[in-house]
């Protein structure tokens, strides 16, 4: 069954912030906040965190280790060739290590960002309100089937009270097409 969202549309980021706190005080579960700009208060209010910096650190360590392993293997083990009397395991590696660490760190970081955020070329998404990437901010609350009509009304009035210029309901379309094996009966 298709899910429905209750959406509060806000015009200003300060009003939005107050609205989030107001709704949280009323124990309303906020599903998501969509906005055309990053708003730092939202991350804190929704207690969102990311482990991306940690991942980048490990990518850096991985990059340095892999590059050093390769340079050492190529110059010392596989084909030891003296250049200008310098030792085979030379300090010049530092420069390549430095840059290659940045290469691997950068590449894997943005790949992680795309994968974790599920962003890819041509991805089709349902846009709850096209103005959310332009000039409006949205607070999205899940319209759970278990909620009574009074509770839904409470959510809507909380949105209006906290300064929402509009309160809408948008049905969520699930675009995922699952591949289903045809049942034997259908084949016959």
């Amino acid at each position: 069954m298709a899910k429905t969202n209750i959406i509060g549309v806000y015009d200003d980021e300060d009003v939005l912030m107050k609205a989030i706190h107001f709704m949280q005080k009323k124990n309303i579960q906020i599903k998501d906040v969509l906005s055309p700009i990053p708003i730092h208060g939202v991350f804190e209010a929704l207690k969102l965190t990311t482990r991306l910096p940690l991942a980048t650190f490990f990518y850096g360590v991985l990059g340095t280790s892999l590059t050093f392993a390769f340079l050492y293997w190529a110059s010392v083990v596989n084909y030891p060739l003296k250049f200008g009397g310098k030792p085979l395991n030379t300090l010049s590696f530092i420069i390549i290590l430095f840059v290659a660490t940045i290469f691997i760190g950068t590449f894997l970081t943005f790949m992680t960002f795309f994968i974790r955020q599920k962003l890819y070329p041509g991805k089709e998404v349902q846009i709850l309100d096209p103005r959310s990437t332009d000039d409006k901010m949205l607070i999205v609350v899940d319209k759970d089937e278990k909620l009574s009509a009074a509770e839904i009304n409470d959510i809507k009035s909380a949105m209006r009270e906290s300064g929402a210029s509009e309160v809408n309901e948008v049905e969520e379309i699930t675009t995922k097409k699952k591949f289903v094996w045809k049942h034997e009966k259908d084949i016959h």
């Binding site: 906040v33 969509l34 991350f43 991306l52 962003l119 991805k123």
Partner: peptide
Amino acid sequence: SFGWVGSAKGWLRFETASLLLGGLA
């Protein structure tokens, strides 16, 4: 646009990724 909608988590990751890439570059 890679299916960008501007969700809160998206922006958090976006900002963090930008700063990380900035710090590396």
